[in-house]
């Protein structure tokens, strides 16, 4: 089955993976390094986390390449190692991928804003995304551009993917809740974002991070009004709480999973989790999906 077959099968809800950062913390990797370098330095642990999500029932998991763009890596003086990082990222996920499951090429924000907030230009974004996409293209089944807070940056990333790849693409923006509804921090409304993405060459429109499952449910109910394209949701498991030197996400799994169940009912095609979710969360969602 290909991703397109899944999209066309009305009875199929696609299960994505959950958070990576909180899994790293659990394993004591709290050094403050960019997780992408761990593809090289702790490749076994990265593979183990991917495996735990596939084993928990994810139909597809994403590569550990959220920050693997030259712009982002340059903050850590790691941009010269981008080829090695991405090569290892693909290897780490390929060796644990289960038969019938897919590998998603993960593309996160560059970390640079356009003026007046930062100094990035669209050309800089484009060339940064292009390099990442070209390096990932051979090893992935589809793409996920995620956690983008500027519609302009999203459109640039989409262009960079489409200039290289015909593979399916999920475009996920991150929104905050305001008195007037859901907006990006740059001021684009949910309606504007979804309607804009509706006219782009993307297969699925998504939202991830920032919002907990409760708010994401409301967002989904709104978003569905503006598009006929399939929708993807990856909410956070509430907000992190720090105790001592440890981080905890205290939202009970059943609360999160009940919201996800409702999102499937509303029409979410792809469901998964972002920060604070774990293989346990994904496994609980697997059971819900299988029971529907």
């Amino acid at each position: 089955m290909s991703f397109h077959d899944w999209l066309e099968d009305d009875s199929k809800t696609i299960l994505f993976d959950g958070g990576l950062g909180s899994e790293l913390i659990k394993r004591g990797l709290t050094s403050g390094k960019i997780p992408d370098i761990l593809n090289i330095e702790q490749s076994e642990i990265i593979s183990e986390i991917h495996k735990s999500y596939y084993d928990a029932g994810s139909d597809m998991c994403q590569t550990n390449t959220f920050g693997s763009t030259p712009l982002n890596l340059s903050h850590y003086n790691l941009e010269i190692r981008i080829e090695e990082i991405i090569e290892n990222a693909l290897e780490n996920i390929k060796k644990v991928r289960l038969s019938g499951c897919l590998i998603v090429g993960d593309i996160g924000p560059t970390g640079e804003f356009r003026p007046p907030v930062g100094n990035a230009s669209s050309d800089e974004w484009y060339s940064s995304f292009s390099i990442q996409v070209k390096l990932l293209e051979t090893g992935v089944d589809l793409w996920h551009i995620e956690t983008i807070s500027d519609l302009e940056e999203m459109l640039t990333a989409i262009r960079a993917v489409r200039d290289v790849s015909k593979k399916p693409l999920i475009a996920s923006i991150t929104y905050k809740r305001t008195k007037k509804g859901f907006f990006t921090i740059m001021g684009d409304s949910l309606e504007k974002c979804v309607e804009t993405l509706n006219n782009e060459d993307v297969d699925v429109i998504g939202a991830n991070c920032t919002l907990g499952s409760n708010d994401m449910l409301d967002l989904l109910k709104n978003a569905i009004e503006f598009t006929d394209k399939p929708l993807s949701v990856k909410p956070n498991a509430g907000q992190p709480v720090i105790k001592g030197d440890q981080t905890y996400y205290e939202q009970p799994i059943n609360e999160f999973v009940n919201d996800i169940k409702e999102m499937i009912g509303v029409g979410a095609k792809i469901v998964g989790g972002c920060c604070g979710t774990s293989p346990k969360t994904i496994n609980a969602i697997r059971k819900i999906i299988d029971s529907l």
Partner: peptide, 14 residues
């Protein structure tokens, strides 16, 4: 109040 966003806030301050 959610009337202005990051670009307006930064521009005003600049």
């Amino acid at each position: 109040d959610g009337e202005f966003f990051l670009p307006e806030l930064m521009r005003g301050a600049q």
